[in-house]
């Protein structure tokens, strides 16, 4: 699926639901459906929050079976204001995420940071990596468009969480 819309916070929930329904139609897996909806929502929240006002935001959700892999790639593209510090912050956050072997450690560190120094930014991306099991990357075009891609493995996912052995 691919959608393009004017940056508007209220539309994010509608898109999240659409992504969930699409994932449900293809995979019929509740856990994956919720996860991929969260990935889309968190990436869109960042695009709307840090992107240029009233600019277009694009999202594509595509299953890729190339090279023997089976993944779903969620890509969000948006325009940013010239010289916006948010691009550097985005790059730094993704680099920081990659410094952890396990995303759950990054998640715990981000939560701790939120408590200890009141840091509010970046937890959404950490959720994408941890809860969505996604690999993140970003690039910026010369035209000032930021593209963030989250690549998620398709289900079935092995059990993970409080009741997992």
């Amino acid at each position: 699926m691919s959608l393009r819309f004017v940056a508007d916070w209220d539309r994010i929930e509608l898109v999240r639901r659409a992504v969930c329904d699409s994932a449900d139609a293809v995979f019929a897996d509740e856990c994956f459906k919720d996860a991929i909806g969260m990935v889309a929502s968190e990436l869109l929240e960042n695009a709307v929050k840090y992107g240029a006002n009233d600019a277009l935001v694009e999202i594509s959700v595509i299953r890729s079976l190339d090279d023997g892999s089976d993944v779903v790639e969620v890509v969000v593209t948006n325009e940013v204001k010239a010289a916006s510090p948010s691009v550097d912050a985005l790059r730094a956050r993704i680099a920081w995420l990659r410094s952890f072997e396990d995303p759950v450690e990054a998640y715990a560190a981000a939560l701790l940071s939120a408590v200890e120094d009141g840091s509010e930014g970046g937890l959404g991306l950490v959720r994408v990596a941890h809860e969505g099991r996604a690999t993140l990357e970003c690039d910026v075009s010369q035209a000032g468009r930021v593209r963030v891609a989250a690549t998620c493995p398709t289900p079935p996912w092995e059990a993970r969480g409080a009741n997992a052995s």
Binding site: E30, M38, A108, H130, E131, R160, G161, A162
Partner: peptide, 16 residues
């Protein structure tokens, strides 16, 4: 139990 996203996040929160 039908919403695993809740469990995944809570498992980490419990540590705190």
């Amino acid at each position: 139990r039908g919403r695993r996203w809740q469990e995944i996040a809570l498992t980490t929160l419990r540590v705190f």
